[in-house]
Measured scan of single mutants.
Amino acid sequence: LRQRHVACLARSERGLGFSIAGGKGSTPYRAGDAGIFVSRIAEGGAAHRAGTLQVGDRVLSINGVDVTEARHDHAVSLLTAASPTIALLLEREAGGP
């Protein structure tokens, strides 16, 4: 079961505080899956403080732009754009009992 949710992050002077992996033109985060995933969350960064991202979340869109088939460098450029806030649509595998 997959759950979707939106995370809104305000960029700090240190950026957004998370890294992505995967996407076309880069090493897959999961074998056989060209999706883009949250690969790291920086301690004390914007994403960590927001508490809405988890490592392993699939990134579906960035500020309304679909990145499900995107190249890695395109997703990075969307994240590093000048916008002071970033809205992410994420998909998470629902774990637990």
Rank of each mutant, 00 (worst) to 15 (best):
residue 2 R to E: 05
residue 39 S to L: 03
residue 85 T to M: 10
residue 57 D to K: 01
residue 29 Y to G: 07
residue 57 D to H: 03
residue 54 Q to L: 10
residue 74 H to C: 11
residue 67 V to Q: 03
residue 15 G to S: 09
residue 59 V to A: 01
residue 50 A to K: 07
residue 81 A to I: 08
residue 6 V to L: 12
residue 65 V to C: 15
residue 51 G to I: 01
residue 89 L to R: 07
residue 48 H to Q: 15
residue 7 A to Q: 04
residue 14 R to A: 11
residue 16 L to K: 03
residue 16 L to P: 11
residue 37 F to V: 02
residue 84 P to D: 12
residue 10 A to F: 11
residue 44 G to R: 06
residue 82 A to M: 11
residue 65 V to L: 07
residue 61 S to P: 02
residue 16 L to V: 11
residue 42 A to Q: 13
residue 42 A to V: 13
residue 94 A to V: 14
residue 37 F to L: 01
residue 69 E to R: 11
residue 54 Q to F: 07
residue 91 E to V: 02
residue 34 A to K: 11
residue 41 I to L: 08
residue 60 L to Q: 01
residue 95 G to D: 12
residue 52 T to A: 10
residue 16 L to I: 09
residue 46 A to Y: 06
residue 45 G to F: 06
residue 51 G to C: 04
residue 78 L to I: 07
residue 25 G to P: 02
residue 70 A to Y: 08
residue 61 S to L: 07
residue 29 Y to A: 06
residue 78 L to W: 02
residue 32 G to N: 12
residue 21 A to I: 12
residue 93 E to W: 07
residue 85 T to R: 11
residue 56 G to A: 04
residue 52 T to D: 12
residue 96 G to T: 12
residue 4 R to M: 08
residue 43 E to V: 11
residue 21 A to C: 12
residue 15 G to T: 06
residue 21 A to Q: 13
residue 68 T to S: 12
residue 5 H to M: 14
residue 69 E to M: 10
residue 21 A to F: 05
residue 57 D to N: 03
residue 50 A to D: 15
residue 36 I to R: 03
residue 47 A to Q: 06
residue 76 V to R: 11
residue 62 I to D: 00
residue 52 T to S: 13
residue 25 G to S: 05
residue 26 S to L: 03
residue 10 A to G: 11
residue 30 R to L: 12
residue 15 G to V: 04
residue 47 A to W: 04
residue 58 R to N: 01
residue 89 L to I: 12
residue 10 A to V: 14
residue 6 V to T: 10
residue 12 S to K: 09
residue 20 I to K: 00
residue 28 P to Y: 09
residue 68 T to H: 06
residue 82 A to E: 12
residue 1 L to S: 13
residue 10 A to W: 07
residue 52 T to R: 07
residue 16 L to Y: 13
residue 58 R to A: 03
residue 13 E to F: 05
residue 24 K to W: 11
residue 77 S to Y: 11
residue 62 I to C: 03
residue 20 I to G: 02
residue 17 G to W: 04
residue 4 R to W: 04
residue 13 E to C: 07
residue 95 G to W: 09
residue 7 A to G: 04
residue 39 S to M: 05
residue 13 E to R: 09
residue 82 A to Q: 14
residue 43 E to D: 15
residue 23 G to S: 01
residue 41 I to P: 01
residue 74 H to L: 12
